[in-house]
């Protein structure tokens, strides 16, 4: 019975069914299924979709569809894990967002999905995120990595500002900063004082592992 629910939860994500995934997550908890197990099948489902994308069989709408389905079930499971005071196995906590002045969300969404598929805990702050919001999230979630996305190089001052505040608040040593986006370069990353850069979403997920030596 419990296996069936978990199987269905996984299937819901593989079939991009957000509402179904959320309902099954609730049902799982009602049936006293271990939330860590539920989390595992969800991560496994997103990883499968990520692998399919990597092989060229699946496409962006599939990737984003799976991420959406996972995110609709995630808060339900996470709340239960926190309530039980369980520890979640994770490669690390990543706070992600598109910087202020930029409303491009596609690259950022891809990175979130792939980071989750790698096994990171991901907090997606959305687009047009101010420096203050980034800092607040880094503190709140005790982030290991701060990932900023931007399509346009014009946003450099804003990204510098984030790094400057991190330094001011003595957070710079506690969190790795990575940047990515269509027209950014290695040089740009160095210039603003980031720890790492990758132009692509799949590359970004791998970069996160390298930054944390995982």
């Amino acid at each position: 019975m419990s296996n069936e629910i978990l199987e269905n939860l996984k299937k819901a994500i593989l079939e991009y069914e957000s509402e179904k995934a959320a309902n099954l997550a609730r049902e799982a908890l009602e049936k006293k299924i271990d939330p860590a197990k539920a989390l595992n099948v969800m991560t496994e489902a997103v990883r499968q979709v990520g692998d399919g994308f990597g092989r060229g069989e699946l496409w962006l709408p599939d990737l984003v569809g799976a991420a959406d389905a996972m995110q609709s079930a995630m808060p339900i499971i996470q709340k239960e894990i926190e309530r039980k005071g369980m520890k979640v196995e994770t490669l690390g906590v990543v706070v992600v967002g598109t910087v202020f002045g930029d409303i491009h969300s596609i690259g950022k969404t891809m990175v979130c999905t792939l980071l989750a598929a790698e096994g990171f805990t991901v907090y997606d702050l959305g687009v047009n995120v101010t420096a203050e919001k980034f800092i607040e999230a880094v503190k709140k979630y005790k982030a290991d990595i701060l990932a900023m996305s931007a399509l346009m190089t014009m946003t450099a001052p804003e990204q510098r500002k984030v790094i400057a505040i991190l330094k001011k608040e003595n957070l710079r040593d506690k969190v790795k900063v990575m940047v990515g986006g269509g027209s950014l370069t290695e040089e740009f990353a160095k210039n603003i004082g980031a720890d790492g850069y990758d132009p692509t979403a799949p590359g970004g997920a791998k970069l996160a592992r390298r930054l944390l030596n995982k």
């Binding site: 709408p61 569809g65 969300s105 596609i106 269509g182």
Partner: peptide, 30 residues
């Protein structure tokens, strides 16, 4: 902040509407 990429309609239709070339370079600069 409305967005279409994560919609069922997009998953269903994009492949019918788009032609995806086999060998054209479609990468970004980096």
């Amino acid at each position: 902040p409305g967005f279409y990429l994560n919609k069922e309609h997009t998953r269903k239709w994009w492949r019918k509407e788009q032609f995806v070339p086999e060998v054209a370079d479609r990468l970004t600069y980096p």
